[in-house]
Design a protein around this nucleic acid. Structure first.
Length: 587
DNA sequence: GCCGTTTTCGGCCCGACTGTTTTCAGTCG
């Protein structure tokens, strides 16, 4: 990243920042009363750019910007200006047309562009605080189409907005859903309980939870749901759906429908929004109109119901698209051409290559961890304790590592049905050196290298440090590559593209760390790594036997990155896995 | 502003709710 006071300095602009500019532009154009389709074009481009697995800076360099869906001539030109100069004149001019802060009014549910402009023009309101004061002073009712009820609702929404809880990580949401479902399954006649929305698509955080199900009689299911022990507040309760707030402030919606229309409903509520828009656009060309109720043949007006998503997609000439990739990129085209990936599944994993024991900071003995791995049905497991640089984690020095190797050998003779691989999660020191002599690392089956200290290094330093480590022929896997720890620690400044290219060159695998607080190799990272032909590995970083089951999170995020079993090293049988490690010239 | 298995122009997803209306505009998911 370059710094400097001069306007000539090139600003590094990341995808998120570019997307934010286009979202802002969409808001401002909306306020301006521009053509809604133009507004939507900016919104669509913003989303596509945010989700782009490749940094836009890279795309500009390679002149591939137009390949991003929704980016045409005008937006490509603006993006290029933004990347090259760090500024966008069009945006600056547009912003100057409105009082600052006005678009923040759009965050209030119930306030759209028309209302925001009305408030600004007639009452001079440009901030949320001013709006609140005006409502309390009873000034709102004098405006056209604004009654007492509207004022009351707006006030409530403003207050709710202030205490709104943040999106919660999927690592917290999923166990909560498990618990709710366990209780709802006890109700007779209930079937098909599944989460929908962002949770089903396995987004790393969710804003609320949508649950779906079918039942012979919805009433007892709804009743059970609204009286669950974790429910703090019931927002609404009807014959087929209910909304509650659970402890922690998270909203959970449950919808119970007939068995025969479940497919279209689930499809609709799974989203994503852009996926559904694209799907409907395509359906219209086939003379079909889609809704949550089913598929309507436009010509005859006849509604067809679908009990399963498979049948729903099939009617449109498509294979059923896995929820994790329904993000409105090119998944529909791929489905139409029969070129959907066969995504990796939990049952594909044959081992875990990053497991700690009580030799360092794990909570269980090697034997206990190994038996737990065997219970998972694994063929192999790799003990990877910390190196001594991690003093706080009781990292192993060379003597204790020697002892541990002897212990593993002993256990391999006594424990049957699973192979214990020797390994280590060795610290990558600040200069890129590994925290254990090469002659010892050479003797290990699998070596994972991780950055645990000096996380504040500059991007150039951090990138060079990691690349240096990967150039060590003894390093097989780069552990938790960006170091993000939710919710407190941001990813380290690292040039992901450069690291991935170095991984390819040095045949180093990248770890998809399944620990829900990490998941630091993100969906877009995974997609890009695959594109570059980098081998991935899904590990849990388990510190106790229960942690081994967290692999579900690694699988979920890998699926969002379009990962197939072949992209993941630990879906291979042991001999095949060892072949992947060999080419680095060890032993 | 984007985009093309009818189109380089003329379209652009769908249904529901709310509050204010006397037939609907605005907003949401």
């Amino acid at each position: 990243m370059r710094r400097g006071g001069s306007g000539l300095a090139l600003a590094a602009v990341n995808n998120k920042q570019i997307a934010k500019v286009f979202e802002d532009i969409a808001d401002l154009l909306e306020l301006k009363g521009e053509n809604v389709f133009k507004v939507r074009a900016y919104q669509k481009a913003a989303r596509a750019i945010e989700q782009s697995p490749t940094e836009v800076e890279q795309l500009v360099k390679e002149d591939r910007l137009r390949a991003v869906p929704g980016v045409g001539e005008a937006i490509a030109k603006k993006t290029t200006e933004l990347v090259q100069t760090g500024k966008l004149e069009y945006y600056e001019k547009l912003k100057a047309e409105f009082p600052p802060g006005l678009s923040a009014l759009l965050d209030i549910p119930g306030v759209g562009p028309k209302t925001a402009m009305l408030l600004s023009k007639d009452l001079g309101i440009t901030t949320v605080d001013e709006l609140e004061k005006a409502i309390v002073a009873g000034k709102l009712a004098q405006l056209p189409r604004m009654g007492e009820k509207t004022a009351e609702n707006l006030l409530r929404h403003i207050q709710a907005l202030r205490r709104k809880t943040q999106r919660i990580p999927i690592g917290q949401a999923l166990p909560l859903v498990d618990e709710i479902f366990a209780r709802l399954r006890a109700v007779p006649g209930v079937r098909n309980l599944v989460p929908a929305g962002s949770l089903r698509r396995f987004l790393e955080t969710v804003g609320d939870i949508d649950l779906m199900g079918t039942a012979d009689d919805p009433k007892p299911v709804i009743d059970t749901f609204t009286t669950l022990p974790m429910v703090n507040d019931v927002l609404g309760k009807g014959t087929t759906k209910a909304s509650v707030v659970v402890s922690g402030g998270l909203q959970v919606d449950l919808r119970i429908v007939d068995h025969d229309s479940f497919g279209s409903l689930l499809q609709y509520f799974t989203g994503s929004k852009q996926h559904n828009i694209n799907l409907r656009q395509r359906a219209l060309r086939q003379g079909l109109s889609l809704s949550e109720y089913g598929i309507t043949v436009v010509e005859t007006g006849k509604l067809e119901k679908y009990a399963t998503e498979e049948a729903f997609y099939q009617r449109l000439g498509l294979a059923c698209i896995p929820p994790e990739i329904r993000e409105g990129t090119d998944e529909i085209d791929r489905a139409a051409k029969g070129k959907l990936p066969t995504l990796v599944e939990p049952g594909d994993l044959k081992g875990d290559l990053h497991v700690h024991s009580d030799w360092s900071d794990g909570r269980a003995s090697i034997e206990t961890m190994v038996k737990a791995a065997k219970d998972m049905g694994y063929e192999y497991v790799c003990i990877a304790d910390h190196s001594h640089g991690r003093g706080i984690a009781r990292g192993l020095n060379r003597d204790r590592l020697e002892e541990q190797l002897a212990e593993i050998e002993k256990l391999n003779n006594s424990v049957k049905g699973i192979r214990i691989l020797s390994g280590m999660e060795v610290d990558i020191r600040s200069d890129g050196a590994l925290d254990m002599p090469d002659e010892l690392l050479e003797r290990l089956d699998v070596v994972t290298g991780s950055v645990h200290s000096g996380l504040g290094q500059s991007q150039d330093q951090m990138t060079a440090r990691i690349v240096t480590a990967m150039e060590n022929p003894n390093l097989d896997i780069l552990g938790h590559p960006t170091g993000r720890l939710m919710p407190d620690r941001e990813a380290a400044a690292v040039d992901v593209e450069a690291v991935f290219r170095a991984a390819k060159r040095t045949a180093t695998m990248l770890e998809i760390n399944a620990m829900p607080s990490r998941l630091d190799l993100k969906d877009t990272h995974i997609y890009r790594a695959r594109e570059l032909g980098v081998m991935l590995v899904i590990n849990t970083d388990a510190h106790s036997p229960e942690h081994l089951a967290l692999s579900r999170f690694g699988i979920g995020i890998a699926r969002r990155g379009w990962c197939e079993a072949g992209d993941v090293a630990n879906t291979r049988s042991l001999p095949e896995l060892l072949k992947l490690i060999k080419p680095k010239g060890k032993k």
